Computed example of a mutant assay.
Amino acid sequence: MELIESVKNWFSDYPVASNIIRYLVWVALVFFLIAWIRRWMKKNLHDNAIKYKVQKAIQIIGYLFIILITISYFTGSIQDFGLAIGLLTAGITITLQELILSIAGSFYIFFVRVYKPGDRIELNGIKGDVIDIDSMYTTMMEIGEWVSSDNYSGRIVKLSNAFVFKGPVYNYSLDFPFVWDEFNMPIRYESDIELAKEIIISAAQEILSEYVKNSIAGWKDVVNKYYIEDAQVEPTLAITMSDNWIQFNLRYIVDYKKRRITKHLLFEEIGKRIRETNGKVTWASATFEIVKIPTLNINETKHTSDNP
């Protein structure tokens, strides 16, 4: 008891020294908590990216605590505890804004149904199929890049959920799992144009009939749900003329995951039927017509010499 009384008397006799000791105790406590929390995060968090960000954030928050303690002890300018908490909260928000946005993004994705696992999306310029969504990241199997068409590249991409607030999200399968595709076919001017039109449309109708049938009901739901005009889902053909050929543009609807194979089947069937016309319809290629060849006169002059 005498020891405690003597310590109390010493603190009362030397207020400046006592404040410094209290300040050092608080600082030591903050550093201890930072070290303990970082060790706990290191053991319990398995994602290295999240582990790194959280550990850095905890460290910065600890520094903010030390700054507030320093101001309150040595300047006395912060008397209102609510103001101190407000400043600390603002600091935490700035420090963890990416983390907070990612968590908020996961709730937004879930409740608004921006996308779900299995959807094909394009987010932050990266296109792929969603294979997982957690509280921080959206995981996609990438398509495109160095491979043609909509094929998998083999890379798995993790994107922060915060990107749903930072730019557009393109969803290939939300509400309407079909897309419109098109390609051009050059036909020679000497071909039977009506026969060519019949071949292309009939082949498209046969190959795409299942897609057209399934897309009609889906498109009606889209028209009823959104402010959008009705669109034609049947294959359509547009014809334009160029200097070298007649260009047939086939536009059609297809399952968003089957663009490549569908285009292959269409080209194969249309090419087969064109070959069966025995020359009535033929493919065109770039041609060059030589209008005039300039005349080249070569005069051979024979030199002779007179011998004396």
Results as ranks from 00 to 15, higher is better:
residue 62 G to Y: 08
residue 123 L to D: 02
residue 106 S to Y: 04
residue 105 G to A: 02
residue 82 G to P: 00
residue 103 I to L: 02
residue 115 Y to K: 09
residue 73 Y to S: 07
residue 44 N to C: 07
residue 58 I to C: 04
residue 105 G to Q: 05
residue 53 K to N: 11
residue 37 I to N: 05
residue 75 T to D: 12
residue 61 I to Q: 12
residue 76 G to N: 09
residue 78 I to D: 10
residue 83 L to Y: 08
residue 117 P to C: 09
residue 63 Y to P: 02
residue 48 N to H: 09
residue 68 L to P: 01
residue 108 Y to C: 03
residue 96 L to F: 01
residue 69 I to P: 04
residue 62 G to Q: 08
residue 54 V to I: 14
residue 116 K to R: 14
residue 108 Y to H: 06
residue 73 Y to I: 00
residue 94 I to M: 11
residue 119 D to C: 09
residue 64 L to N: 08
residue 110 F to G: 06
residue 49 A to V: 13
residue 92 I to L: 11
residue 99 L to D: 08
residue 47 D to C: 06
residue 121 I to H: 02
residue 102 S to L: 01
residue 91 G to E: 08
residue 48 N to T: 10
residue 109 I to T: 04
residue 93 T to W: 07
residue 62 G to F: 03
residue 108 Y to R: 08
residue 113 R to A: 08
residue 39 R to G: 09
residue 63 Y to T: 02
residue 89 T to P: 04
residue 117 P to M: 14
residue 66 I to Q: 03
residue 47 D to L: 06
residue 121 I to M: 08
residue 66 I to K: 04
residue 67 I to F: 06
residue 39 R to I: 11
residue 98 E to P: 03
residue 110 F to T: 08
residue 105 G to M: 03
residue 47 D to N: 15
residue 99 L to A: 07
residue 89 T to R: 04
residue 89 T to Y: 06
residue 75 T to V: 07
residue 113 R to P: 03
residue 75 T to W: 12
residue 78 I to H: 10
residue 125 G to C: 06
residue 56 K to H: 09
residue 97 Q to Y: 13
residue 110 F to E: 12
residue 115 Y to P: 00
residue 81 F to T: 10
residue 101 L to R: 00
residue 38 R to Q: 15
residue 109 I to G: 00
residue 71 I to K: 01
residue 72 S to L: 02
residue 57 A to Y: 04
residue 38 R to N: 15
residue 58 I to V: 15
residue 95 T to R: 01
residue 92 I to C: 11
residue 80 D to Y: 06
residue 76 G to Q: 11
residue 62 G to V: 05
residue 36 W to A: 14
residue 80 D to T: 06
residue 90 A to D: 07
residue 73 Y to H: 10
residue 50 I to T: 12
residue 90 A to C: 08
residue 84 A to I: 01
residue 55 Q to R: 13
residue 46 H to D: 14
residue 120 R to V: 10
residue 38 R to P: 00
residue 56 K to E: 10
residue 64 L to W: 04
residue 111 F to Q: 06
residue 114 V to F: 01
residue 123 L to V: 08
residue 72 S to F: 04
residue 112 V to N: 13
residue 50 I to F: 07
residue 37 I to S: 10
residue 70 T to G: 08
residue 53 K to D: 12
residue 108 Y to V: 01
residue 92 I to V: 14
residue 87 L to T: 00
